[in-house]
Design a protein around this nucleic acid. Structure first.
Length: 344
DNA sequence: GAAACGTGGCG
DNA sequence: TCGCCAAGTTT
């Protein structure tokens, strides 16, 4: 008689996807994949994993690159603190650990960007340590299997779920079993329209028996979006433009944007005339998890850039595309006639 | 411990 | 259009 865990492990061996990080036990690559996959779907993260593992084959390649370079490679993936912490941790590992990842959950937890989930994932997948992982998939699988109606979000509920995950893990191979649970949640026990008809553990599933699969797990409602308004001034002449590096404690931390009014005392645009054909306005709306941004770009051709001084950086247009920029600026390059002709 | 951090896909 | 969710972490 197979246990629930054995069923899920068997299911995994038959149905697991062919993914690039499943060909290695190299802790560096396992770590890289886990950071990329935080809050990110496999389909979205996979191209980035290939890029990173090709461009930075070892942790030394990553550590000896610049943060700007890492940010540029990360561009478009979101949650940019992951990229900054990736670079930080690479430096710590090379400088303080002689390039070798620590193998213990406790030691891994100390590294920037590695929390409970990632420490458990690396220690189990790369080092065969019997430590259960708990991610969004596993919350869902466990809540349905055992009919857990506790609301997800608090520390005590988290401990309760980890207890279940530890029981399920038992003596099974930790790397495979942890991945099996996540893969099972991602492909079979999905948030919407799970494939219960072909589920290998439906006869052991509380939610299936009670016909409340669609009600589990119980999650907290999100706060309503906040509106925020940005106006960027895209000053440029034939060769240069002005950029500004965003602070790390806000959205797009460490990425480059155009100056806004608040840091533009030196940008005098008295001599600009509305309706000038060398000025263009582009409006964009951009939705993030917690806010709705209304962004206006005012694109202005200016002959006097060299005279500008202050906190902004003057950047050669040719080098502009080596800097990491937020999604709306990528979109701008598709929408603006002036800007498009300038950078291409 | 609540709130914030990005982007993309789906119903 | 909108809400929800995704291999979570940090403050």
């Amino acid at each position: 008689m197979k246990s629930i865990s054995e069923h899920i492990l068997s299911w995994y061996h038959t149905h697991k996807r062919d993914l690039p990080w499943r060909y290695t036990k190299n802790p560096y690559l396992i770590w890289l994949s886990e950071i990329i996959l935080q809050q990110t779907k496999v389909s979205q993260g996979t191209p980035y994993f290939i890029q990173f593992s090709t461009k930075y084959p070892s942790i030394y390649d990553l550590a000896f690159s610049s943060e700007d370079d890492v940010m540029k490679t990360w561009q478009g993936l979101g949650y940019y603190s992951r990229a900054r912490n990736l670079h930080k941790t690479a430096k710590i590992i090379t400088e303080q650990y002689s390039g070798h990842f620590p193998d213990s959950y406790k030691e891994l937890l100390k590294l920037p960007g590695i929390g409970e989930y990632t420490a458990a994932a690396i220690s189990s997948i790369a080092f065969d340590q019997s430590i259960p992982v708990l991610d969004g998939n596993i919350y869902r699988v466990i809540s349905r299997l055992f009919g857990v109606t506790l609301e997800i979000g608090t520390t005590s509920v988290k401990k309760y779920f980890i207890g279940h995950a530890a029981n399920l893990l038992g003596d099974l191979p930790p790397g495979d079993f942890n991945q099996a649970m996540m893969e099972f949640g991602a492909l079979q026990c999905t948030p919407k329209n799970p494939s219960c008809d072909i589920c290998p553990v439906k006869n052991k599933c509380s939610a299936f028996a009670n016909d409340n699969v669609h009600l589990l797990p119980v999650t907290k409602k999100r706060n309503p979006l906040k509106d925020r308004y940005f106006t960027y001034y895209v000053f440029h002449d034939a060769t240069h433009t002005i950029v500004h590096r965003r602070a790390n404690d806000d959205i797009w931390g460490g990425l480059y944007e155009f100056p806004k009014k608040e840091h533009s005392k030196l940008l005098n645009y008295n001599n600009l005339k509305h309706g000038d054909d060398e000025m263009e306005v582009v409006d964009l709306r951009h939705i993030l998890t917690h806010q709705r941004l209304f962004i206006r770009f005012i694109i202005i051709r200016q002959q006097i850039l060299q005279k500008l001084e202050g906190s902004q950086q003057l950047i050669q247009l040719k080098k502009f595309d080596t800097l990491a920029i937020p999604k709306p600026i990528v979109l701008l390059s598709q929408k603006s006639l002036i800007w498009k002709s300038l950078i291409s």
